[in-house]
């Protein structure tokens, strides 16, 4: 394959952008999953008495 000039720069820019967006997505998803688990544990402990 014939790589274009500055292909390292192009790949680096796309890799950083993809990694950052994937990281933001993973962080949001993991935060939600952790909160749901913690809430489920607490609601079990309080017999579902929630407001």
């Amino acid at each position: 394959m014939n790589w274009p000039a500055h292909s390292g720069f192009i790949l680096a820019a796309w890799a950083i952008a993809s990694a950052t967006l994937a990281g933001m997505t993973a962080a949001t998803w993991l935060d939600g999953a952790r909160l749901k688990r913690a809430l489920a544990r607490l609601e079990e402990g309080t017999d579902g008495r929630v407001d």
Binding site: D31, G32, L35, K36, A38, L42, T46, V50, D51
Partner: peptide, 20 residues
């Protein structure tokens, strides 16, 4: 939208923790 929903869950968790 997911992060705002997480924030709602976080507040609910805090309320419940205090109540417990």
């Amino acid at each position: 939208v997911a992060a705002v929903r997480n924030e709602i869950l976080r507040r609910r968790l805090r309320r419940l923790t205090l109540r417990a």
